[in-house]
Computed example of a mutant assay.
Amino acid sequence: MIVDCGTYRAGRRTEGPEDFSDALDAVRAAGDGFVWIGLADPTKAEFDHAADEFGLHPLAVEDAVTAHQRPKLDIYRDSVFTVLKTAGYHPHDESVSIGELMIFLGDSYVMTVRHGPESPLKDLRARLEEQPELLAHGPAAVLYAIFDMVVDQYLDVATELQTDLDELEAEIFSPGRVRGAAERIYGFKRQVVNFRKAAFPLMEPALRLTRAGTASGEVNVPFVPAELRPYFRDVADHLAKVNEVVESLDRLLSDILSANLAQVSVQQNDDMRKISAWAALAAVPTMIAGIYGMNFEHMPELRQAWGYPAALSLMAGVCFVLHRLFKRAGWL
């Protein structure tokens, strides 16, 4: 559905037609300002109507309706299409949820399409409307503000994940065995991997928005004025910091998982040594008792009065010696 449709001139929101098509015609006829239309989880029919009015490329329209796209920046003849993944952290279950934001940038308009709960733009629009000097740069100012908001979300999520990982690491390597440690580490790693899929691919679009055309033939991103490039450069720096944190989290989780598996293997070896030692201690009296229980008539000391105590003493003596040996070897 259409969440909001605003007309902006000289960086300030002004009264304009409620219908976005009429609003776009008005700003183009006046030769100044732009229209910002926001859609949330639109149906195909709703989006097709908006796409026809704005003349959006059919490939970009297909991506916007289908959702579940990789972060990217595509340049078409009359518009720029950008996909960003939003992220939110939920402390109650220590999970990361991923949403999706799509931005169409064109002549005198910017259209935002959001999917999922992690990408509300109402507060962002309100903050931008308090910065007319930024909005005066046109639709690209909205693109920058959304990039900045998304990367700020990434920084917050990365900080929370780092805190959770520190707690998990301390718990895993605390004395005593932690039940289900490998499963917890693997679950945490999945959260980091999902977050990484959102943050890492966004670096390429962010860098494209910071560069001018070069001798190699790189084309400037249309509808993005040169004076906004330093703003995108700042966003790219913050995103690089996020990616460094995510990379270190991923490596550390792999190291923790390997260390935990090694710890489990060592513990299992210790357990097997203890089991083997106790089995050897139990085998000695079992063997002696088994020999004397074979009911042969001619057995050593079978008719001696001290034969029974001697057999028990032999069992106890051998078990005592074995116990001392195993204890000294660290098996018990």
Rank of each mutant, 00 (worst) to 15 (best):
T214G: 11
V221P: 00
T214P: 11
V235C: 02
L228H: 10
S216F: 11
K241Y: 14
A240R: 12
A240F: 12
V221Y: 00
V224S: 06
P225W: 01
V221T: 04
R229V: 06
A212L: 15
V242C: 03
V219P: 08
T210A: 06
L228C: 02
A240S: 12
A226V: 04
A240E: 14
H238P: 07
K241C: 14
F223L: 08
V235R: 08
P230T: 09
A240I: 03
V242R: 01
G213W: 01
R229D: 08
E218W: 09
R229M: 01
G213C: 04
T214Q: 15
K241L: 14
E218N: 13
A236Q: 09
N220D: 14
L239S: 00
S216P: 12
V219Q: 14
R211L: 10
E227T: 01
R211K: 15
A212F: 15
P222R: 03
P222H: 05
V221G: 05
A226P: 01
K241A: 12
P222D: 07
Y231T: 09
F232K: 03
T210H: 03
Y231I: 02
L239Q: 01
A212G: 15
R233E: 13
E227D: 14
N220P: 08
S216T: 15
A226R: 12
V221E: 02
P225Q: 03
E218R: 06
R211F: 10
A240G: 12
R233V: 10
R229P: 11
P222Y: 06
A215C: 13
V219N: 11
F223Y: 08
V235Q: 03
P230L: 11
R211M: 14
D237E: 06
E218S: 10
D234L: 07
E218F: 11
Y231L: 00
P230F: 11
G217C: 02
G217N: 00
P222L: 10
